[in-house]
């Protein structure tokens, strides 16, 4: 079972809210100093799912991302977790791409990789959350897609997938090759082993440019984007919390109940 996983490197989503900074003038999020970027939360679930399938069924995992030189660190982590090969898409032509532009470049890279059974992505990125790239990628490659999986079972000629719904689980059969997306319902990603880190450090990560992919520069980048950003700011919450106290915590708890009753909230 050969798997291609597309990931995104993002700024650490778990930094304290006070360290989250926005440059409103430039309409940019200012990355926190001294906090390295990480693999987008659900993309790590996708990597883990791919490794578990490989452990069960054999095969090869190739990881792809688009980004600057720092993105190599995230690819190295994927290799250290257990992926076999990694590719970095890097070209000034890609700068300012919207989710559709990214999907076009990723689709070209997946075609260049060649044979695969499953294309795997995280459901949604932790930064701009376009919620678009995986399905646009499936559309570009004319693949069937099953999103927000919580279980995958390989069967003859295809997969049985359990999809996490608002109120339950949907079971669908899909043929391969196909695109799958996962989020935190699926698994808890492993930490790389020491041996894995050593193996990863010896692996080369090729850089592919737009021309290597046969991507028309006019179909990616800021010029091809169909959405424009017009404003970016941090939301302001003016609420004032009233701390309820008492001689003991039990008394504070009773005072809280009395206050909610007085406010007719309970």
């Amino acid at each position: 079972m050969d798997i291609v996983v597309c990931i995104k490197q993002v700024q650490d989503p778990d930094i304290p809210p006070r360290d989250f900074k926005v440059d409103e003038e430039k309409m940019m999020v200012v990355p926190p100093a001294n906090v390295p970027p990480v693999i987008s939360t659900f993309d790590e679930n996708a990597i883990e799912a791919a490794i578990q399938l490989k452990e069960a069924k054999g095969g090869k995992i190739t990881v792809v991302t688009m980004g600057g030189d720092k993105a190599k660190d995230s690819l190295k982590k994927c290799l250290a977790m257990g992926c076999d090969e990694a590719v970095l898409l890097q070209d000034p032509a890609f700068d300012g791409s919207d989710a559709f532009g990214v999907a076009r470049a990723l689709a070209a890279a997946v075609r260049k990789i060649g044979k695969f059974d499953i294309l795997m992505c995280g459901r949604l990125s932790s930064d701009w959350s376009y919620g678009t790239t995986p399905l646009a990628l499936a559309e570009a490659l004319n693949l069937p897609s099953v999103t927000q999986l919580q279980k995958i079972e390989a069967r003859d000629g295809g997969l049985r997938c359990e999809r996490a719904l608002e109120d339950g689980v949907e079971v669908v059969d899909v043929s391969t090759p196909c695109l799958l997306t996962v989020s935190n319902e699926m698994n808890n990603p492993r930490l790389p082993s020491v041996k894995g880190i050593l193996t990863a450090s010896r692996k080369q990560i090729p850089l592919w440019k737009a021309a290597d992919l046969g991507v028309d520069a006019g179909s990616v980048g800021a010029g091809a984007a169909t959405l424009e950003l017009t404003k970016l700011y941090k939301p302001v919450f003016t609420g004032q919390c009233e701390f309820i106290t008492g001689e003991t915590l039990e008394e504070a708890a009773e005072n809280l109940a009395l206050r909610l009753r007085a406010d007719k909230i309970i």
């Binding site: 701009w128 959350s129 970016l232």
Partner: peptide
């Protein structure tokens, strides 16, 4: 966006 840490137009 950014998990609700920023608002984009």
């Amino acid at each position: 966006v950014f998990g609700g840490s920023a608002i984009s137009h």
